[in-house]
Amino acid sequence: MVEHIEASPEASATMTSTQERIPTVVVDDAHIIYRVHQGASGGTTPVAALRRLVKRTHAPNVREVHAVKGVSFTAYRGEAIGLIGSNGSGKSTILRAIAGLLPVNKGAIHTQGQPSLLGVNAALLNDLSGERNVTLGCLAMGMHPDEVAQQAAGIIEFSGINERGDFASLPMRTYSSGMAARLRFSIAAAKKHDVLLIDEALATGDKGFRKRSEQRVRELREGAGTVFLVSHQLSSVRDTCERTIWLESGVLRMDGPTDEVIRAYEAYANSK
């Protein structure tokens, strides 16, 4: 059952009291099917591989997953939208599709500008120092070298990697996973994005960093962008987003003000 709740007039009116609301992401009945590799599972010997070649069958360890089944919604400028749902409900998949990294099998996704996906898996160059990675990351986002030089110190300070000694000049492979994730978030958050997609990235930092990053997400939003946040931590969704979309097994269950959606989701999760 799909339940659509009207976005509360107060919430949207505060941002768009005078001008009309500008959509930044329009998802139109999107279906996403992708192939997953199950890893080594039977038939991994050279003989089996040869037999597959001769018989022209696909490798047995590839399976198709219908991850998103006809989801539609519209995101507007200035909104921060939380995406919640159980594991495997298609949250991360739809973010990657919005970022243009996964094709849509049916339907369409339209975006304003180029959305940037910020995930915990986003790797930079591990052999290089944090400072160099900041420069590279900023250039890769399309910044001008002068702009990078201006911002680099701020990014490192924001990430807090220098709190315990001079880590910025050490190679990134020496970082803890939390430090690396913080640095990646700081780099991505340094630029104004039309649409910023955050996948569990805030969950990795410590408390102080989480506070700073929530503040940063708010700023990015005020800079007229749209922020999507995928998280299993309902508290961080509640703190940053006023609108929430609940996906369950690839279907949109509910779309509305965060409080209402989270209440319904918690009731659902507890009843299971």
């Binding site: 139109d28 519209t74 970022a99 975006t111 304003q112």
Partner: peptide, 17 residues
């Protein structure tokens, strides 16, 4: 407006084009 018309009205591009 339908979703597609809304996107076209505001000049949105198809993701990953």
């Amino acid at each position: 407006l339908t979703q597609a018309q809304l996107a076209a009205r505001h000049g949105l591009r198809v993701a990953g084009e």
